[in-house]
Structures are given as C-alpha cells and as structure tokens.
Design a protein around this nucleic acid. Structure first.
Lengths: 325, 325
DNA sequence: TTGTAGGCGTTATCAA
DNA sequence: TTGATAACGCCTACAA
C-alpha cells in the first residue's frame, strides 16, 4: 500500500493524501474525512524511508556506548529513548566494548545511515573522526566522558566535587591512611575522580603516600588486585576510595579471598552497588544520577535537532551525592 | 556529496559508480581504481536511506523490550546487536515499560520505519497486532516469553525443567516446608516456573500447602510482601523458591526488615543476584544464559532475513543450570 | 565494458 | 481547494 494506491482508492491526488497525512496546506473537511476513512480502511502506513529521503531528514539518532549491558548507561539511554520517541526520532544503538576500532566502524556505519545526531560515550580513540562528524553538520553530544580538546556539547557528572566529598567524609571519620583505587587515566571520569580525591587529601593535610594509590582499570579484577596490593603493605589502609562500582565489587572479592572480614575496611565507592542496602559492612556510596543525565541530554538533543545552534556547552549537570552506610 | 557528484568528478556515469560500490556488474580495473580514488578523495559515503528506498529493504530490525535497563535483556540484545552489525543491519530499540499501550505505539512506529524483522519480549497485550505484523510479511521472533497462541518463532529458556530441578535440590536437602514466590501468571516465564516447581513438589510427594504459594509480580516489593506473609504463618517455610531475582532481592530485604538472620532461610532464586558470591548465606541460583539466547536469536534472525522461511519454531534452547551456594 | 533513463514512495512547487 | 509533476539518491534493465 503506497500513497498512490490510497489516492486512487479515494479518488483524489497523492498531493491531497500527503496534505491530510501531514496536516499541511488546505484540504476541505469532506475530502479530509473521506481520505482518513480510506487510510483506515486499508490500514495504510506511510513509508518513513521515502519520507526521509524526500525531506533529507532521517529522524534517527546514533548512540554509541562502551557497554550496552551496563545499567548505568542503559538508564541514561532509556530516558533518552523515551524523549526521542515522543519527538518521532529513533535511536540506533552501537556497542563498542571499549574498543576504539569498533567505535570507528560504528561511527562510519551510522554516518551512512544519515543520523541527524550522535550521542557518544567515547573510548577516546577517534577524536579526529568525531570532530569531523561534528564539522560536517551532525550534532554531537558527548556523554559521561569529557574530551576538552573537542569543543563539543558535553553532559557529564561533577566527578571532581563528588570525589572530594568522599575523601572529606573519610577524613571526618578520622581515617588517615586512605587508599585510592583509580580508573584508567585516559578516561576523563577516572581522571577527575582521582584529581578530586587528591585535592580532598591535600585539603585535609594528609600527605599522599604512593603506596596507597593503586592504578586500576575500572574492572572487577583490578579491585581484587588493589586489595592484594594494599594488604601486603606493612600498614594497610584503614579506608579506601574506589573510583567505580565494579572495582568496589572487586575489593570485597579481594577481602574475601584474603580471609579479611568484609567490615574490616571502610569503603566509599563512586557508584552504588545494588545490594549495598543488604550489606552490614562499612560501605558508603556516591549515588550517580543516570536519569537526570538522560533528561539533560534528551533536552539538549531536541533543542539541537530543532535548530537551536548556539555555542557548544560543557555541562556538568549533576553533583552526585554521597549516601553513608 | 551524492553519487552524481562522484560520477562527474570521476568522469564516468552514476551506473559505474554504483557498480564499483556494490561490486556488481563489470567495470574495468583502471576505471574501478580511479573511481575508488575519487570516492576516497571526497570521503563519499553512500546514502543508506536512498539505497533502502530503491531496494525496498530497510536493513533495520526492531527490538521491543519491557525494560531497557534490565541487564538480562540487554545482555541478550548486545549479542544480537553485534550479529546484526556484522550483517549490515541496525537495531531500533523500544522500551515498553511493561505497558501494553506503549508496546502498541512502539510497534506502529516501527512499522512505519519499515523494519524487516521484529524481536519482541511482549507484554502479552497486543497479540492480534503482533500476529498481523507477522502475516504482513515482517519476520517476528518472540524473545524469552512464549505465546503459544501465536505460532511464531520463539526463543526462550526451559523454565519448567529448571524450576523442577530447583525444587529437587531443596528436597534433597531435606526441606519439607518449601515456600513458592511466583511471578505474574500471565507471563509465560512465570507460569512455567510455577508449573515446574509444582511438578517438583508432586514428584517428591510433598503436598502443596496453599499458604506456601505466594503470588507475586516479579517486583522487589512483592518479595518483601512474600516474606511478611510467610513469617506470620504458624510454621514458616524452611526454604523458598523465588521465581526471579528481583523478588529474591525483596526476600532478603524482607528478612532484614523483620530482623530475621539472612541465613535462617534457604533460598533458590531463578536468576542470579550479582552479589551472591559475596553472600555467605544459603542462597543458590539458577543461572540464566542471556548470551546463549542472544546467539540463538541472532542466528535465527539472519536465517529468516536471508529468506530461510520454513516453519515457525518454538525453541527452548537453554536449560538454565543451578549453582549451589 | 559503460551509459541512459526510469522508478522506489514521498513531499513540495506550481498551476489551475 | 486540489492536481500534476519534479525532485530526493540510488540501483538496474536495457542499450550502446
């Protein structure tokens, strides 16, 4: 069923059908009514692809993530998806598995699909490509991870402040030997969390012991490794700040492995563990706000798609808050 | 940049460009080489929308889920997405929030986008619409939840067998008062798990006490409610089979609320809780296999898209396995 | 081996 | 108020 078939059935021209479909131009009430009848009768659905071609608008948005099974990213995405659906856009999801090559292929693929906008939590491995996508007129919004070299719209959380608070919290509880389990420093979130933590220590007048800085990579395994490292020190830390939830999980697995009671160590985790409410141990968490992030991105996205140009803005919209155990 | 521009730049016709792009028809090595040069030089990317219109193939697949932030569904989806990407297809995700009306709108939306196939974990509220989508030629694959009325391709897990095993496991440990926390019986997974559990009890010669059957709805809250119910009985159960992980979580929250030690109750959960390895309590889980499901769906999908018609098959591909605590 | 031209299903510009 | 028609960018007979 095409618009031509409907036109023939209704005894009018395709132009009239199009006008009815899009409520554009003038069409007499009687004709309009009749056309709608015919449309209903044949259960006609306009072809969005043809429409896209004609209007040179795909009404699609690409979203490229390092891990589609990560609830944090998916809570953000879900919110964006709802907003997009409302506005008649659809999302093309791509999973890079944190691999720059896959990211590059995904971007190429999406360009051929003529996405109107790109939402991206980048691996950081394709910055020139990303810049050129933006230059060629596709709206780009960076998600979660910042790349200051890029001068693109960015929506992220205020990692630095939150990390600083985490340390202040531990200092307040009289900890002096505080271990830091960091993420990969090429990713802005990890970098900023580390920076915030270091500032926090400095403000508390605590000297930074290199032994207590463990460079992890956001994986569970590196949490385990951090604990192995800390507990072979002469004086293990009495508290630990972990830069993400996966590593926090690893920290507890590590303690378990070493036979250390899980509440022997006070922990603050950037990003909550779902089950922390069942835990009786001394685990506090910085609660992230994926939904707020998703809303901000959705809002900005629609604004950009509707032609609101303006300067690229680097928004750190949420200050994640610390939930004591 | 369109194919015409490239043709002009290369001094050949659009047909030749098209032939080079698609490696179809004959084109002399020199011309081919030259054309490729020009394409590279101008960084030309063919317009997938125009191609779709002409070929009457959108190369897109719709995937409709009750919850995009649920890691179980997303692990399945991620696997499917990878397979689709390999084959040049892209996925359009829709989140229904378990709401039949949203599901219906989402299906309508996807039809206008001319998806070639639909993957669906349905709410069950739009069965006629789904059947008509299949009838009109769009491949449909039902995911996770079965609807025997529909005679459509279905890929799910063998809930019945797994639930039966769970009960056998508890019986083996000499439990005689076993509580059942069920899911919403309109969803096949819940229905089948309940059925399997009842068969297990029957085979063990244990009479089914109505007091020990709690009808929940797959939410955390109903897990809590189940515990409140069980612990007001004269003789609470000594073990519980929980039909999904959210309710299992609720069960522990409920125990915590009542001040009952978490290891006072032996629990088998359909679907693992991520943190169960940190738990010292008597929690066993039936481990689901989202990746295997995703692979099976991806395989079937590509087969259908490539014209493999054949009978609709109802595959229960995985027998989830029980992991003792 | 390459080119010409028509059409995929829409929308939008003119005329009528 | 409505209709005829030319695009949109690509593919593909059919010709040459």
């Amino acid at each position: 069923m095409t618009i031509k078939d409907i036109a023939r059935e209704a005894g009018v021209s395709t132009a009239t059908i199009s006008r009815v479909l899009n409520s554009s131009g003038y069409v007499s009430p009687e004709v309009k009514h009749h056309v709608q009848e015919v449309i209903r009768k044949f259960n006609y659905q306009p072809n969005a692809i043809a429409r896209s071609l004609k209007q040179e608008k795909s009404r699609s948005v690409g979203i490229v993530l390092p891990d589609m099974a990560n609830p944090y990213f998916m809570r953000i995405s879900r919110t964006i998806q709802h907003r997009c659906f409302q506005e008649g856009y659809h999302l093309l999801f791509m999973d890079t598995e944190e691999n720059p090559e896959k990211e590059s292929e995904a971007l190429q693929f999406l360009l051929e699909k003529r996405i109107e906008a790109l939402i991206l939590a980048s691996t950081g491995g394709n910055l020139e490509q990303i810049q050129s996508i933006s230059d060629s007129g596709t709206h780009v919004i960076l998600l979660d991870r910042r790349f200051p070299d890029l001068a693109l719209d960015t929506v992220s959380e205020d990692n630095r402040s939150a990390a600083k608070c985490a340390i202040a919290y531990l200092v307040d509880k009289h900890h002096e030997r505080i271990g830091l389990v960091n993420g990969p420093q090429t990713i802005s979130t990890a970098h900023e969390r580390r920076e915030g933590a270091l500032i926090g220590l400095e403000e508390a007048g605590i000297a930074i012991a290199p032994d207590l800085l463990y460079e992890g990579d956001y994986t569970r395994e590196s949490g385990i490794a951090a604990i192995r490292h800390f507990y072979q020190l002469e004086k293990p830390p009495t508290a630990v700040f972990s830069a993400n939830n996966e590593m926090t999980f690893g920290i507890y697995l590590g303690l378990q492995e070493l036979g250390v009671p899980l509440d022997a160590l006070e922990v603050v985790s950037f990003g909550d563990l779902e089950f922390s409410s069942l835990f009786t141990h001394r685990l506090s968490a910085i609660k992230q706000q994926p939904q707020a992030l998703g809303e901000a991105i959705g809002e900005l996205l629609i604004q950009r798609l509707n032609g609101g140009v303006g300067e690229a803005r680097d928004q750190q919209i949420v200050i994640p808050s610390l939930i004591p155990f």
